[in-house]
């Protein structure tokens, strides 16, 4: 990062010096490179900075972004640091049973008991997202913007049918997270991810993740599952097996019909036949890892896909079991 030089970097003469800004000219192997880092203090300033600096990249926890910059895979013309925008770091209720989460909410904050009581699956995903150092700075918004296939919060947001608020100079718009992730309705130039709206369900919700070690690790597969007793529905999303979280809609509809919703709340009631739960697992796995992926011999990609299918199947079955317990 650039040290605050105190010299000519403080604000640039051409613009209104509203946003605290550092400019630096560095010689990089004989090539002059301009580096600009802006530190807006409010959302309005951030949106404005984004509007006037095309190609600027907003950065919050920087756990993914700076790794790419340091490795030379990414050389952004300018960075807009969001760390000083305190309004984005919290969350609030909104009428109509919605939680509005700031994009700057850290994984560590989402793991705290008050938040975990509200959206337990998101708290579980945040808790397993990495080592404490990463969770202390890595943010919800960063997880969505990076959209890594193994991003732990993404299947939870997909299954909760969360929406994102995108702000730009002069207005905002709401986009379902799944549309954002799939590219159906992507982030446009000059837009900043500011809020995530999560409908509160007051019903069991589960996030499960399979990894290759007990310590923090990337998911080989993850499953988020919620019950919606009001609509007598089950929603499920599978993460890390495809570039975006997958929703096995047919399996969801099918399993909702297998659940004895009326027995809910009764002591010791079996809500679902174990065979149906196992079949649900298979159904989900089959939907997310299509038969075509299984080609390629016993040691080739087919074997990998078969193992992944089995893992997803176990995760989905267990997630349903925990949700119905």
């Amino acid at each position: 990062m650039v040290p605050p030089s105190g010299g000519p970097g403080w604000g640039s003469p051409g613009r209104r010096p509203r946003v605290r800004q550092f400019d630096e000219q560095v010689e990089h192997g004989g090539i002059q490179v301009n580096r600009t880092i802006m530190l807006p203090a409010s959302l309005d300033e951030a949106v404005e900075a984004l509007a006037v600096t095309p190609g600027a990249v907003p950065v919050a926890g920087a756990t993914d972004l700076m790794e790419a910059v340091n490795a030379g895979r990414l050389r952004p013309a300018a960075l807009i640091g969001l760390g000083r925008i305190t309004e984005l770091r919290g969350w609030r209720y909104e009428d109509g049973g919605t939680a509005v989460l700031g994009a700057g909410l850290t994984h560590a904050r989402m793991d705290r008991p008050d938040f975990a009581a509200l959206i337990p699956a998101l708290a579980d995903a945040a808790r397993t997202a990495g080592p404490p150092q990463v969770r202390n700075v890595g943010t919800l918004g960063g997880n969505i913007a990076t959209a890594a296939p193994a991003g732990d919060t993404l299947p939870v947001l997909a299954v909760l049918e969360a929406t994102a608020t995108l702000a730009r100079a002069g207005g905002t718009r709401e986009v379902p997270i799944s549309h954002l992730l799939t590219g159906l309705d992507p982030l446009r130039p000059g837009e900043l991810l500011t809020w995530v709206r999560v409908p509160l369900l007051h019903a069991p919700q589960v996030f499960l993740k399979a990894t290759s070690r007990s310590g923090p690790a990337r998911a080989t597969a993850s499953v988020a599952l919620v019950l919606d007793p009001a609509r007598r529905a089950v929603r499920c999303a599978v993460g890390a097996v495809a570039p975006v979280p997958l929703r096995p809609l047919e399996a969801e509809t099918w399993v909702a019909g297998c659940i004895d919703w009326d027995a809910r709340g009764e002591e010791g009631a079996a809500l679902i036949d174990p065979a149906a739960a196992a079949a649900f697992g298979e159904y989900v796995a089959g939907a997310c890892i299509p038969d075509g992926a299984l080609d390629g011999g016993p040691e080739g990609p087919g074997a990998v896909a078969l193992r992944l299918r089995r893992t997803v199947s176990v995760l989905a079955r267990r997630a349903l079991g925990r949700a119905l317990k």
Binding site: D124, R127, T128, L208, K209, A210, T211, R213, S214, G215, P216, A217, V314, L315, R318, G321
Partner: peptide, 15 residues
Amino acid sequence: WLLPGGPGGAGDPAA
């Protein structure tokens, strides 16, 4: 019990 898969993992005591 710290189950295989770690805290917050997918471990199921039955398995």
